[in-house]
């Protein structure tokens, strides 16, 4: 019986090891994502095609729902389930358009991932630099990666030279809602307008 227990223990251990060894390391995930985005921007594609490719990359590598709720800040607490659902559907369209439109302006960006710091079991911060070109200096970019599911890490924030883009977005959303006396519909209207504009 003791022997069986011992084998069982070894097998369990090896399973744990096996699983962990194949868990995606956040820094590898970020480097791979950045390379993929760089490739999409490098190709001589039209702006629309670049945006389409970037949207596909974002859908599989970014926690859009998480960013959506983070961006709502304190206002998400007053929302019912149906309202949350409606908001997230609109937010996803907004995010993909805004994200791809911002990035599509860049050509051939080269990102080098340098290190990672595990903040806790849920979050890891990956440090990288956007390499300098003749025209532009090196830019420090950090990526907050959610690692709740170690096999499927997702990006939840990008921090450029210490400026969190998720925080900028949250403060923008808050400003829109606050200026309409806390009415979240004002934000939804703005998001829809943004989605529909050329």
């Amino acid at each position: 019986m003791k022997k069986i227990n011992k084998y069982f223990f070894i097998i369990t251990l090896s399973f744990i090891f096996f699983e962990n060894s194949f868990a995606t390391q956040p820094y590898l995930f970020v480097q791979q994502t950045a390379d993929e985005a760089s490739e999409a921007l490098n190709k001589r594609l039209s702006r629309e095609d670049k945006m389409k490719k970037l949207m596909i990359i974002a859908k599989k590598t970014v926690d859009i729902k998480g960013i959506g709720f983070y961006s709502l800040g304190k206002h998400r607490k007053g929302l019912g389930e149906e309202e949350k659902k409606e908001y997230i559907e609109i937010f996803e369209q907004y995010f993909l358009k805004s994200f791809s439109s911002r990035l599509a302006e860049y050509t051939d960006p080269k990102i080098r991932v340098d290190s990672q710091k595990v903040l806790n079991e849920k979050y890891t911060m990956v440090s990288s630099v956007l390499l300098a070109t003749k025209e532009k200096p090196e830019i420090k970019i950090d990526w907050r990666v959610i690692t709740k599911n170690p096999d499927k890490p997702l990006i939840i924030d990008v921090i450029i030279e210490g400026v969190s883009l998720a925080k900028v977005q949250r403060e923008e959303f808050n400003s829109i809602i606050q200026n309409k006396d806390g009415d979240i519909n004002a934000l939804l209207l703005n998001l829809k307008e943004f989605i529909s504009k050329d």
Binding site: S98, V168, E171, E172, N174, S175, I176, E193, F194
Partner: peptide
């Protein structure tokens, strides 16, 4: 790409 450029 901002909806409220002032806030951004």
């Amino acid at each position: 790409n901002s909806m409220d450029f002032y806030a951004s």
